[in-house]
Every structure is written in C-alpha cells, then in structure tokens.
C-alpha cells in the first residue's frame, strides 16, 4: 500500500504526468481512499519538490512540470472526493501595481502558489487600487499579493492598503508584496509582508495563513 504512495510521490518529483495518472488510477482501483492518495502521495511528492527547489537542487521548469504531473493525478481523484476531504491551502488575489506592466516575477509566484495548493485569482497588470478592492469584495481572499518593478509604481501598493483599511477589509486578510525595488523596510512601512523570491513567497503565504488560523 504505502509503496504505491511512494511511487506516486516519486513520479510527481520526477514530473512524470503519465506515470502519476496510471499510478493514481491503480490506487483507486485497489480501493484506496482519494483523500489518502492526495495526502500520502501527491502532496508528499510536491512537498519534496518544494524542498529540492529551496536547496537549489531543482530548477523552476522542473518544479512546474512536477506540479503539472500532480494536477494530472488530482484531476482523477477530484470527482471522487467528498465534501471537506481536501482543503485549499488558501485563496489569494494577485495583481501587478497600477502603472506597472512587469509581471514575470508575479507569474512565477502565482504558479508556485498554485503548485502548493493555493487558489489564486490573477487580476493582471496595471491594476488600479479600486479594482483590487472590488476583487477582494467579490472573492473574499485570505491573501492579497501585489508586485511592482518600478520605484514609481510602489506608491500604488501603499494606496491599495490604505483603501483596504478604509473599506474595513484589511483586518480579514494579509497583504504580501514583492518586486525588484521592494524591501522589507518598505513593506513594514505600508503594513504589508515581504518576501524576496518565489519560494520565500510560498513560505510567507503559509506563515500568514497559519497566523490567521491561530487568531
């Protein structure tokens, strides 16, 4: 039994989508619980991927291939899940700050967050503070993520946070920001949290979520 879980995890680490598909189907046929297939196989593999990436032993494209392989497995298991079997790690609304069209870093963070089980709504680039407020009201996320590549677009992130406060939304969520000119100090000043790369962003998101659950 556990051997099959190990094989699933290994196939996820190796980014073998076909293999994951076959193994997950095999597990279902053998009567294994969908929830356990996810928690003991697919997620175990993806956690290992995160660890390898953090230690520079795995590269971004390989992480993404692994996450695609995991999703292949998820697609098979999902229809069999019962209500409450699997919880999303969290829900996030992401945007590139007003006036800024640079978003490769944000895209990277979003993909990594999705790989880690987050649901992420990407509002795109050059997003006005008001649009972010609108999206928060609509989606009710745990996290708002913003990025900025230019010193000139950083103030839009501050404006957004002020607007969240004015609308009484700030207390229900956490704000994380990033981008080349952004610093820890700036984040502190505007009441946001900062991370300096994609895997640090996932760790930050996890930390923020567990803070909120602890409250």
């Amino acid at each position: 039994m556990s051997e099959l879980y190990e094989q699933i995890a290994e196939s996820v680490v190796n980014g073998m989508a076909d293999e994951v598909e076959n193994l997950v189907q095999k597990a279902i046929n053998q009567g294994m619980k969908p929830k356990e297939i996810i928690n003991n196989g697919l997620i175990v593999g993806m956690n290992e991927v995160g660890e390898l990436f953090k230690n520079f032993e795995m590269f971004v494209p390989e992480v993404l291939i692994s996450s695609q392989a995991m999703n292949k497995g998820m697609e098979i298991v999902k229809p069999l899940l019962k209500e409450g079997d699997v919880q999303k790690a969290g829900k996030a609304v992401f945007a590139t700050a007003r006036g800024d069209l640079h978003d490769i870093g944000k895209k990277l963070v979003i993909m990594m967050m999705e790989s880690s089980g987050y649901e992420v709504i990407d509002l795109g680039v050059d997003v006005k503070p008001e649009e972010i407020i609108q999206a928060v009201k609509e989606h009710n996320p745990n996290i708002v993520g913003m990025s900025s590549m230019l010193t000139t677009t950083m103030p839009a992130m501050k404006e957004t946070i002020e607007l969240l406060k004015e609308n009484d939304l700030y207390g229900n969520l956490k704000v994380m920001i990033g981008g080349a000119p952004v610093t820890e100090k700036y984040a502190d000043e505007i009441d946001a949290s900062y991370s300096n790369n994609a895997s640090a962003a996932i760790e930050l998101a996890n930390r923020l979520i567990s803070c909120m659950q602890a409250v």
Partner: peptide, 8 residues
C-alpha cells in the same frame, strides 16, 4: 515561457 515544454 516558464511553463512550456520547450523550456523544460
């Protein structure tokens, strides 16, 4: 291009 097979 991060997510493309060509990249991988």
């Amino acid at each position: 291009f991060l997510n493309e097979k060509h990249t991988m």
